[in-house]
Design a binder for these strands. Structure first.
Length: 459
RNA sequence: GGCGGAGUGGCCGAGUGGUUCAGGCAAGGGCCUGCAAAGCCCUGUACACGGGUUCGAUUCCCGUCUCCGCCUCCA
């Protein structure tokens, strides 16, 4: 089965056929860098990272753009409140997002363009829209005329005549539902010169400009959170198609992470920030937790659920360590057909994880039965799957090869375990158990295996 | 008011017109172990509610209830 994806525009799962064979182009709406990233922000990034890895695995050359919105009302007001330059505020939080993405194992995008660096392209797009009668300048603002584009509302299923208000700002608007392409700057605000006066980008324009700059007038996938369907993506689609670009062929939208049943958002204050999460949990376990449910299903966040997911991850990790420790080197093999079919079916990560766990179970059974060849084969398959999901425990990214401290710890534990083995050999189990208890007390779990004791640091 | 999503066994979380079914976590029994741990095997009550279609519905249709999201900045 070829890859199929759910397209919001058509509301159905369709076969994914890239515009240019052999390549896949995707544009993901990144962050408005006004604050610290929370768990909801990275969920989307993680979903698209898995998709991207799967596309690469499927043999496609993937171009991925993830933008940075570095100019917007909130950035200006928050920076002003903090008494800092707006550009410093944006840069600081852009780094916070970058750090979060990196910590969670997201592959870097092909490019992470900033809105402020693409004003030239925005002006060009506005000119095309004005020339074709889809946009108009008024009092230093530039608006898109929604009634000029009959298809407006198609993506989100909104009907123009059913729409309630539009944006609040409306100086010179011909129709309250028209949206802002370009905002006239107020005194003291940052601005860029345009033929219609100095101002700054409206929110939607940048994505159209940057997506087509890097990916061409038509590209394969446009992703973002469900809240972007309207108005953001609706408006992007309208302005780009009105300007004559084919724009996105597939619109993907990931669901929320909720807390106590409610959307996580800064205005509600129910935010679980990533830096905070990473202090309390291993990044790979957080990643595992966030990519396991289907990307279009809401995740109701809870510490308990995260801990359970972590247990599941450790089971996989433990299996690979067991094999690597007793049967020999584990390379990255091939993914099972059922795994591929699961991901091909609209990125069915839940089913993919089921295949992964079944393989782990079979691998453990093979190990118990002393069938090393089979155990290694299954472990290599497990590595292939975890690699696609970005959670390979043996990868350089996640393998825990500590520095000097870890090395010192290793030596100490090694000594204690050797002493314990000597005691066991003499059937002095009291001493052996005392040593094990001491280690357990210190947070180190000891497990005896046919090939000797194994130890892990538990939290 | 318009558009959309959801309600599954102790918990998380898939899926399907029927018979064997996700998967994980937790629980109980067993095997293994010096004892453990890990692992493996076995076990359990599910599909919000009320109708309808059907030989048969958790799955299709209608209705009801509850929850959530979007329509204003938001992943």
């Amino acid at each position: 089965m070829a890859l199929h994806l759910y397209d919001t525009a058509t509301r159905e799962v369709r076969e994914f056929a890239p515009a240019r064979s052999g390549t896949a182009s995707m544009y993901v709406c990144g962050a408005t860098v006004q604050g610290i990233p929370h768990i909801g922000h990275v969920r989307g990034a993680l979903n698209y990272d898995v998709l991207r890895r799967w596309l690469v695995h499927s043999g496609l050359d993937v171009l991925m753009v993830r933008n940075v919105t570095d100019i917007d009302d909130k950035i200006l007001t928050k920076a002003a409140d903090a008494g800092r330059p707006w550009w410093e505020w944006a840069a600081t939080h852009e780094r916070a997002f970058e750090d979060a993405y990196t910590a969670l194992g997201c592959l870097p995008p092909s490019i992470a363009p900033r809105a402020t660096g693409h004003v030239t392209q925005m002006i060009e797009l506005m000119r095309r829209l004005i020339d074709s009668g889809h946009a108009y300048a008024a009092e230093g603002n530039v608006y898109f005329s929604v009634t000029s584009f009959p298809d407006y509302g198609r993506l989100s299923g909104q009907r123009l005549d059913e729409m309630q208000q539009g944006e609040t700002q409306s100086e010179g608007k011909r129709d309250p539902r028209d949206f802002t392409l370009w905002k006239r700057s107020k005194p003291g605000e940052p601005s860029w010169p345009t033929p219609w006066g100095p101002g700054r980008p409206g929110w939607h324009l940048e994505c159209s400009a940057m997506a087509t700059t890097y990916l061409g007038s038509e590209f394969d996938i446009h992703g973002g959170g469900v809240d972007l369907v309207f108005p953001h993506h609706e408006n992007e689609r309208a302005q780009s198609r009105a300007a004559g670009d084919g724009f996105a062929r597939f619109w993907l939208h990931n669901a929320w992470v909720t807390l106590s049943g409610e959307k996580m958002s800064k205005s509600l204050g129910n935010v679980v920030s990533i830096p905070e999460m990473l202090r309390r949990h291993r990044a790979v376990e957080l990643r595992y937790y966030l990519i396991q449910p289907h990307y279009r299903s809401t995740i109701e966040y809870s510490d308990a659920a995260l801990s359970e997911a972590a247990q599941g991850y450790r089971r996989i990790e433990q299996f690979l360590r067991r094999v690597a420790g007793s049967a020999g080197e584990v390379r990255t093999g091939k993914v099972p057909m059922e795994f591929a079919e699961a991901l091909d079916d609209d990125l069915g990560t839940p089913q993919a994880f089921a295949v992964l766990h079944n393989t782990v179970r079979d691998g453990n059974a093979a190990l118990d039965a002393g069938d090393s060849a089979q155990a290694i084969a299954l472990a290599e398959s497990v590595r292939a799957m975890t690699d696609v999901l970005g959670v390979d425990p043996l990868s350089a990214r996640w393998a825990e090869h500590g520095g000097a401290e870890a090395q010192a710890l290793g030596e100490l534990v090694h000594e204690l375990l050797a002493a314990r083995q000597r005691a066991r050999a003499e059937r002095d189990f009291a001493t052996a158990d005392t040593i094990r208890d001491q280690l357990t007390q210190a947070g180190i779990a000891v497990e005896d295996t046919p090939s000797g004791p194994m130890w892990t640091v538990r939290d």
